[in-house]
Design a protein around this nucleic acid. Structure first.
Lengths: 120, 120
DNA sequence: TGGACATTACGATGGCGATCGTAATTGGAG
DNA sequence: CTCCAATTACGATCGCCATCGTAATGTCCA
């Protein structure tokens, strides 16, 4: 009954972003790795990311990131590509996300799994 | 090495600041409140801060903040005033501390206990 | 229609950390 | 010297959360 193309999973509005919730989300190393990867590839799904945790855990982390307002998730068929809410975060917390990404080393070899890969 | 006049508690160097450690430290609400208060009063001791937790807990939080590189602590008699390492943090993570402080509301009435306040 | 795949809801578990009370240490004041 | 205040090390407790396995749901394709 929901044939809406371009559906988005529920997320806080740009003015509802809470610094505590955002920091708690970004405090986890795995979630920070997800953020760093998203910054590189632009958009990715849970299974496309090559992380040292199980997919169900990645899904959990993505939910935390979405509910905190760090990422937004789009419904596309049976996949849910997520991307960083770079503009919203920059407007609300200038420099925060950028500094974190810049200081978060991306483990070599962990890009994506040829889902929407960029290089090569 | 041992300058009796200006002793400092051990802390990471400016180039040893780790984004993960810093974020973990700033993820806690009480520690963020400490940071916000330090930004207002400039320098404060554990007992001078009026917080909803016991002094031993404040001391613990201050240690976490110091070991993460967020604050530096000076030895002054039998007290240890701490202050924000604003410059070091700004150089390493531009905008991070500023955004967090700006977005962290300071509960009204919780300044210091007239210990070393100099709010004009 | 049936099978393969992506996502996630759910429950269980193990570990980490925030908080406390207590005690020990140390410097300052009388 | 004696007392007090400040700090913190230590141990205990307890709640939260990262992670997992499993199962349920939904989509796409042959």
């Amino acid at each position: 009954m929901n044939d809406e193309r371009g559906a988005w999973l529920p997320q806080p509005g740009p003015d509802e972003l809470d610094i505590g919730t955002v920091l708690q989300a970004l405090a986890d190393p795995t979630r920070r790795q997800i953020v760093a990867l998203l910054d590189v590839v632009g958009e990715a799904t849970c299974t496309s990311l090559d992380l040292p945790v199980k997919v169900s855990t990645v899904s959990h982390h993505m939910k935390v990131l979405r509910e905190s307002g760090v990422v937004s998730t789009r419904v596309d068929g049976n996949t849910r590509p997520s991307r960083l809410r770079h503009a919203d975060l920059e407007r609300r917390f200038p420099g925060l996300l950028t500094s974190i990404i810049r200081a978060t080393p991306v483990p070599s070899g962990s890009s994506t799994r040829s889902d929407d890969a960029d290089d090569r």
